[in-house]
Design a protein around this nucleic acid. Sequence first.
DNA 1: GGAAACCTTGACATCATGGCAAGGTCAAGC
DNA 2: GCTTGACCTTGCCATGATGTCAAGGTTTCC
Lengths: 142, 142
Amino acid sequence: MSKPYPMNIGSAADASGVSPKMIRHYEAMGLMPKVARTPSGYRTYTQDDVHVLRFIRHARDLGFGVDAMASLLSLWRDRRRPSAKVKALALAHLERLDVKIAELVAMKNTLASLAAHCHGDDRPQCPILEELAQDGHMGRHA
Amino acid sequence: MSKPYPMNIGSAADASGVSPKMIRHYEAMGLMPKVARTPSGYRTYTQDDVHVLRFIRHARDLGFGVDAMASLLSLWRDRRRPSAKVKALALAHLERLDVKIAELVAMKNTLASLAAHCHGDDRPQCPILEELAQDGHMGRHA
DNA sequence: GGAAACCTTGACATCATGGCAAGGTCAAGC
DNA sequence: GCTTGACCTTGCCATGATGTCAAGGTTTCC
């Protein structure tokens, strides 16, 4: 093995992909259980702790928020969970992702069509600024 | 006219679509010029001020950050601006949007494929949790 | 024993926004 | 003229996920 357990926070960070800062942060906010300490106060991480950290990082990489991660963790720990509950969390998050993506795509489309009509030369005339300066809401153009 | 100028911050907010809170915020951070005040300290907004606020809201609605909005505003005010500068800002922002969209779509795809394989019933077995609990990085699955 | 690398906590920053609180102001009704 | 309610002021705290910096204790290795 490359690292013996238990490890300090830095090694746990390397092993899990979660920064020391975020590990402490998750601990402070109650997402991570409080791990053991050495007599001098250093946090020590077992293999199980590192597994939890990895779980958290994976969930975070999928964009789950802290609340959802807490729910996922408790389902993970519950060997009798119904998979339906996990799926429900996933679908809810997918919904959030879709909404966010749609927003960004709408911005992108609007901006792209404005930019397409902008000469992009030394002349000051520019449909982008004209649109931004317009009175009502935006939209309705190419 | 529905509202006489000058107006108080609340009316300016209604007229521009930027909340009073954010108007003060933009002013404090220097994005908005400091507007006139009544003797008692109330901010007063002219039609021009409201136009600036609308411009800001439109830019914000397109996802521009504060720095980019400041640049756009100064280009807007410069009647001799080259449209190329505006276009460059727009294209840079489009790039950011594309990156963000790609990230979210990647999350969505991963999560959707995991969810598709989850029974979503009373059984505890669930590929979503299994994936999150996995050791290495995520990816490589349907 | 001293230096380097690590750990601790805590404070502050980001970005855009909301909320709350304590207090001043203004307009309208009685 | 006074009360009431709506509006304004400033300022602080919170979000979410992360980073930075600082000041100080610990461990490790030479």
